[in-house]
Amino acid sequence: MNVNGLEFPDDLLYAAEHNLWLREEPDGSVTLGLTAYGCALYGQIFAFTPKRDNAHIECDRSFGVVEFAKAASSARSPLAGIMLASNHNVVRNPALINKDCYASGWLIRIKPDDWPATQARLLSGQAAAEAFAERMRLDDYNPQDDGVQALRGNPH
């Protein structure tokens, strides 16, 4: 789906309030990454510093820090669980987040404490599109603003 020129793949789940996408893996773990809207808001990302592997992450608590042009932001998890791994390629080359946020630019994998309860709170399809459209409206997001939009011409 496309919202204001930004792509949100239909096969993912979304936590709009965290600007994150989630994908359940065959082994029951969940991969998290920053959405195209999160990338557009941050602009060029200069660093991702994750918590250590095997740390227990609480819901709405930080799993790492994302550094961008003039600030840093705590990346907060929409679910509780054990952090299985961070994306070491992104730690070494954070530009992957902006280049391919839905594939090679993923951030962490987590073993959820209660995936069914979390899944029930996540959005997909039209509900996700509406939630992101509303966030963009509330944020006064302007897809034509070069100061905000770091993804112009990028399909992700």
Rank of each mutant, 00 (worst) to 15 (best):
H18W: 00
H18R: 05
N19W: 11
N19I: 01
N19Y: 04
N19Q: 11
N19A: 08
N19K: 04
L20N: 08
L20H: 04
W21L: 07
W21Y: 13
W21A: 09
L22C: 13
L22W: 08
L22D: 02
R23N: 06
E24T: 11
E25P: 00
E25C: 10
P26L: 09
D27F: 10
D27Y: 08
D27H: 09
D27C: 11
D27R: 09
G28E: 06
G28H: 07
S29Q: 07
S29D: 07
S29T: 13
V30R: 01
V30A: 03
V30N: 02
T31Q: 04
T31E: 10
T31N: 00
T31F: 00
T31R: 13
L32I: 11
L32V: 09
L32F: 07
L32M: 15
L32G: 07
G33E: 09
G33P: 07
G33I: 08
L34H: 02
L34N: 03
T35F: 02
A36H: 06
Y37F: 14
Y37H: 10
G38W: 07
G38T: 04
G38M: 09
G38P: 14
C39Y: 03
C39E: 06
A40G: 05
L41K: 11
L41I: 13
L41W: 03
Y42H: 14
Y42K: 13
G43R: 03
G43L: 08
Q44D: 14
Q44K: 14
Q44W: 09
I45Q: 00
I45V: 12
I45D: 05
A47S: 09
F48C: 09
F48P: 10
F48N: 04
T49E: 12
T49D: 11
T49V: 12
P50Y: 01
P50L: 00
P50M: 06
P50I: 13
K51C: 12
K51W: 05
K51V: 14
R52C: 05
D53W: 02
N54W: 11
A55C: 14
A55E: 15
A55Y: 04
A55T: 15
H56A: 12
H56D: 15
H56F: 15
I57A: 01
I57L: 00
E58Y: 08
E58D: 14
E58C: 04
E58H: 13
C59I: 13
C59G: 10
C59P: 12
C59R: 14
D60F: 03
R61F: 07
R61Q: 13
R61Y: 10
S62A: 12
S62R: 12
S62D: 05
F63V: 04
F63L: 08
F63A: 06
F63K: 00
G64C: 06
G64F: 06
V65Y: 01
